[in-house]
Amino acid sequence: MTDIEPIAVEVAYALPKKQKLLSVLVKPGTTALQAAQQSGITQFFPELDLTTASMGIFGQTLGVKGLAPPESYAMQAGERVEIYRPLISDPKEVRKRVAARQKAAAEKAGVDK
């Protein structure tokens, strides 16, 4: 029987004023979710629920655009699991509000001339 060499991966999570990047050795075939769990990241961020958090690998969100979800994506040596915070507001809605304010300001400026 041969020994299986572990692979090195990283797990990252960041809040506005606190960030953590952890290196962890895992068995080949370990999923992104398992790597995050094995890293112990929740010791630093107890409010973090890894089972519901969005995750990605180097900016590619897992579970979309053909990538497997975190619970089935098999990590490769040197990859970094990024755990994403939930969005505070929908970027599309923010852009709509800004455009509406700009339009209203332009209309008001046109009236004031």
Rank of each mutant, 00 (worst) to 15 (best):
R85A: 08
R80D: 05
K92L: 14
S89N: 11
M55L: 12
K92P: 03
E79P: 00
V94E: 13
L87V: 14
P69H: 00
L67N: 14
G63I: 07
S54Q: 15
V98L: 12
Y73S: 02
A68F: 07
E71H: 15
G78E: 02
G66N: 09
D90T: 01
T52D: 09
E79S: 07
K65R: 10
L67E: 13
P70S: 08
K92G: 14
G59R: 06
P70D: 08
T52W: 01
K96M: 13
T61C: 04
M55H: 03
M55A: 11
T61H: 02
M55R: 02
S54P: 00
M75N: 06
V98S: 00
L62R: 01
V81L: 02
Q60P: 04
S54H: 14
P86E: 01
L62V: 07
E79D: 05
E93M: 13
K96E: 15
P86W: 07
P91C: 03
Q76M: 14
P69D: 01
A68P: 08
T52L: 11
R85G: 02
T52M: 08
G59A: 00
D90Q: 08
R95T: 05
K65H: 10
R97M: 11
A77G: 06
G66I: 03
A74H: 13
I88N: 07
K65T: 07
P69C: 00
M55C: 10
A53M: 08
T52C: 07
V98Q: 08
V64F: 12
K65C: 07
Q76R: 15
